[in-house]
């Protein structure tokens, strides 16, 4: 799956979990750019992504990402 497709799918998950249809993500988006994305909703987002793609992130991975791009890279590597 192309990274652009993944970004759109992840964006849908963000919109659903954070209840905000206007969220637009880019690879450089960080928690500071997205309203409602805090340490608590972060884990909800992760669990929702894991469910959607039927993969599991390690705790280390979850703590390591600096922006959405790194999350997508990690996700893509698991789907490869």
């Amino acid at each position: 799956m192309q990274k652009e497709d993944l970004l759109l799918k992840v964006q849908d998950i963000f919109r659903d979990v954070l209840d905000d249809e206007e969220i637009v993500l880019s690879e450089t988006s960080t928690a500071e750019d997205v309203e409602g994305w805090d340490s608590l909703t972060h884990i909800q987002l992760i669990v929702a992504i894991e469910k959607k793609f039927k993969i599991k992130f390690t705790s280390k991975e979850i703590l390591s990402w600096k922006n959405v791009g790194e999350l997508i890279d990690c996700l893509a590597s698991k789907l490869a």
Partner: peptide, 15 residues
């Protein structure tokens, strides 16, 4: 129990 939920939030029940 979900270890990543626990590690990142100190919460012991999975979503």
């Amino acid at each position: 129990f979900d270890s990543s939920v626990y590690v990142s939030t100190e919460m012991l029940l999975s979503l």
